[in-house]
């Protein structure tokens, strides 16, 4: 499972999302879009909008910290394993 999170440093939901994955022991790649312009553009392209966090789980794009959507994708992955 490949997880990428696009964040800004002042966004509390980005922090909550990271804490969620940390608590489950799930690894992810974080891109701070305020530091990385290329990733900022990539995020807008992937999600079609400019709100953070954007979470990419194996190509499935989740906008905001949508715990239910994240859990659904993670459960599917665990079941497939």
């Amino acid at each position: 499972m490949n997880i990428e999170i696009y964040t800004t440093p002042t966004c509390i939901w980005c922090k909550t999302a990271k804490e969620y994955f940390d608590s489950k022991g799930i690894e992810y790649k974080e891109y701070d879009v305020t530091e990385d312009n290329e990733k900022a553009l990539e995020m807008v392209e992937k999600s079609g909008q400019r709100g953070v966090p954007v979470i990419d789980i194996d190509g499935n794009i989740i906008i905001g910290f949508d715990k239910e959507a994240i859990e659904e994708l993670i459960t599917e992955f665990i079941e497939d394993e």
């Binding site: 079609g48 709100g51 906008i63």
Partner: peptide, 12 residues
């Protein structure tokens, strides 16, 4: 929302 409208300056 998310397309040039936001409710959160700290986030976006």
């Amino acid at each position: 929302v998310g397309k040039a409208i936001s409710y959160c300056v700290s986030c976006d």
